[in-house]
Write a protein that binds this DNA or RNA. Sequence first.
DNA 1: CTGTATCCCATACGATACTG
DNA 2: CAGTATCGTATGGGATACAG
Lengths: 144, 144
Amino acid sequence: MATMTAEQRRAEAKAEFDAYMETCPTSRLMAVLGNKWTTTLLNRLADHGTMRHAELARSVPGISAKMLTQSLRALERDGLVTRHVTAAVPVQVDYTLTVLGETLIPIVATVRAWADRHMPDVEAARGRYDGARAGEAVPSPRDR
Amino acid sequence: MATMTAEQRRAEAKAEFDAYMETCPTSRLMAVLGNKWTTTLLNRLADHGTMRHAELARSVPGISAKMLTQSLRALERDGLVTRHVTAAVPVQVDYTLTVLGETLIPIVATVRAWADRHMPDVEAARGRYDGARAGEAVPSPRDR
DNA sequence: CTGTATCCCATACGATACTG
DNA sequence: CAGTATCGTATGGGATACAG
């Protein structure tokens, strides 16, 4: 059908892209860690060990119930956390890092260390870039 | 006005979120690295040193001209790469990592090392999870 | 060669409301 | 308590065409 053309085009493009991305584990990992709450959740679990749903919710300000569940599901699917249900009057669900998940913690810690040290520089660069583009003087104190 | 309510709600929510995210450099960094082409471009520049626009385009299969420019602009804004224009008959634009950008390379390398070693495990976990949910028996490590 | 402008789709994220 | 369902918006990302 003629209506297939556009969709087909997109399918091809996606296939082409995936063919490349398939060979790039780094990108695939970043797609996981790049999600808004992933690193935060991993860090909380690393710090507190096993945690309940509500406990995590309290521990991570701003996260919605939906995103909490969704993010944890994704991590479970990726084999990074386990989900344990305890049948009780109020159901109790515990989340824990898997051994695989634990191996990821030092990596996140490394990233965190760089972020703590250098993100201010990045923010400053953004300010300079945006300020300069906004027509404001402030050309460039120190770049490169 | 009544029409402000929804928009105002969202503004508050965003403010609340930003207030938290502002305190979390790691999340902000991940938002950068999580973009589809960021790590790939950083790696290419780290490997080849200064590169031209077209050179990068050839070096990164599947990237569109738009995303190449857009990604590089973002990196420039963040102070991670410099953009140097050489006025000539066909304009020539070179991109290079800044010193700040170079400090990020070891971090990316660390991430890459984990990804190379453990992403297959993640993929396997996904296969198991999806296979089990699909109603197919095959709860075992070998499906297909 | 390098970059911009449009258009459009897919998805991430959030608010709200509702089940076991 | 934990989770699902539905809805809505914002943004990332790609195709195409055009311009300096």
